[in-house]
Computed example of a mutant assay.
Amino acid sequence: MEVKFFTPTREYTERKDEFNKAIQSVLDSGNFIMGREVADFEEAIKKYTGAKYAVSVASGTDALVIASEILGFKTGKEVITSPFTFLSSTSCIARSGAKPVFVDIDKDTFNIDADKIEEKINPKTAGILPIHLFCQMSDMNKITDLASKNNLRVLEDAAEAFGMKWKGKNGVVYRHSGTIGDMGIFSFFPTKTLGGYGDGGMIVTNDAKLAEMAKMLKVHGASKKYHYDYLGYNSRLDTIQAAVLLVKLKHIDEAIEKREKVSDWYKERLKDLNYIKIPKIKGEQRPVYYVFNILAQNRDELAAYLKQNHVGTSIYYPIPLHLQKCFNYLGYKKGDFPVAEKVAGEVLALPIYPEITEDEVDFVCTTIKNFYKK
């Protein structure tokens, strides 16, 4: 049996008529840039997440860069974030001229350890950039409390967190990821829970002024055509991507439920395996299993064995950002963030997507068990 780490073709096959109709409608209209579907998708995101404003852009990375600029993450300022994440979560800070300041991660969740943030705050600190990773959100109660206490901006990197919700304090209703801080972003890269057929991103906020800035910066900084208030970017969500994402958004709750069922299959089959550790969900929140990670002894050998047996895997992330060459100038060294470094050496992502079958999950887990029997 072959089990791919990810495949978009099963979903397309299941809903081929819907996708083809949506794409053909765009082709027939000829409105490939900022077409009707883009505005419709922004409205749909507002409705689903509860955000007051949603501004579509060309990618999750662009969303982070634009939001960082708007929030004043600039030269002379510092922004606190995690070293255990994808590059763009931190490169957006550096590109604006600010200094990324890392805090180690929680060993059970892989998210930023909110208890270690306060010690990094100083007069230069402009904001906090929590990343909601893999299946759960960072501790937004502690983060927003610290931000309020110290007059800091919060930019939520919810690139992997579409559908995740945090309950908050005092019995407050669940709030969608990205809508709790000053600004939040989503990525619609094809592998994401809500993924397109190419790149795409979204900025969400409840602040009208921040939203207006985002709308201008995404189109070269123009307040209206050929009237430039700022030096902005060329970052527009393609109309075809919006059309595809509108189809997928109609079925997102079903997809999330299927991901949770797959995660339950993995948890049940791997729970008694001493060589494997499964991350814990912490806080009053609703997780979404975008990725199913394990911590595995002899991780690299296990990954190679799975590959030999036609099981796809991935490693998120093999090298923490503080040890990446591009961030040498920050002066960090090995050992500075021991939890992130340990997790990077043990973490392994197993195949998870709504269309994967129980037989395929059985095969993955049996192959893992066979490896440790050797």
Rank of each mutant, 00 (worst) to 15 (best):
T7I: 05
P8L: 00
P8S: 01
R15Y: 15
E18Y: 15
A22C: 08
S25I: 01
F41T: 03
S59P: 06
E69G: 15
E69S: 15
V79G: 08
V79D: 09
I80W: 09
I80L: 00
F84L: 14
S89V: 00
K99I: 03
D104T: 06
T109V: 06
F110L: 13
N111S: 09
A114N: 07
K124N: 14
H132V: 07
N141I: 12
L146I: 05
K149C: 07
L152K: 04
E156I: 05
G178A: 04
M183Y: 08
F186V: 07
F186P: 03
T191Y: 11
T191F: 15
Y197Q: 13
Y197V: 11
D207E: 14
M213H: 12
M213F: 13
A214V: 01
H220P: 00
G221R: 07
A222G: 07
A222H: 05
S223P: 01
K224W: 14
Y226W: 15
I240L: 13
A243S: 14
V247A: 04
L249S: 07
K250C: 07
H251A: 14
E254L: 13
K261M: 10
V262A: 14
S263C: 13
K271C: 02
L273S: 11
I276Y: 08
E284S: 06
V288Y: 05
L302I: 10
Q308T: 10
V311Q: 02
S314N: 15
Y316I: 07
Y316G: 13
Y317G: 09
P318K: 05
H322D: 03
L323G: 02
Q324W: 06
K325T: 10
C326N: 15
K333I: 05
K334V: 03
G335H: 02
G335P: 08
V343P: 00
L348V: 04
A349Q: 10
L350G: 05
I352P: 08
E358N: 12
C365I: 01
T367M: 01
K369G: 09
K373C: 00
K374G: 13
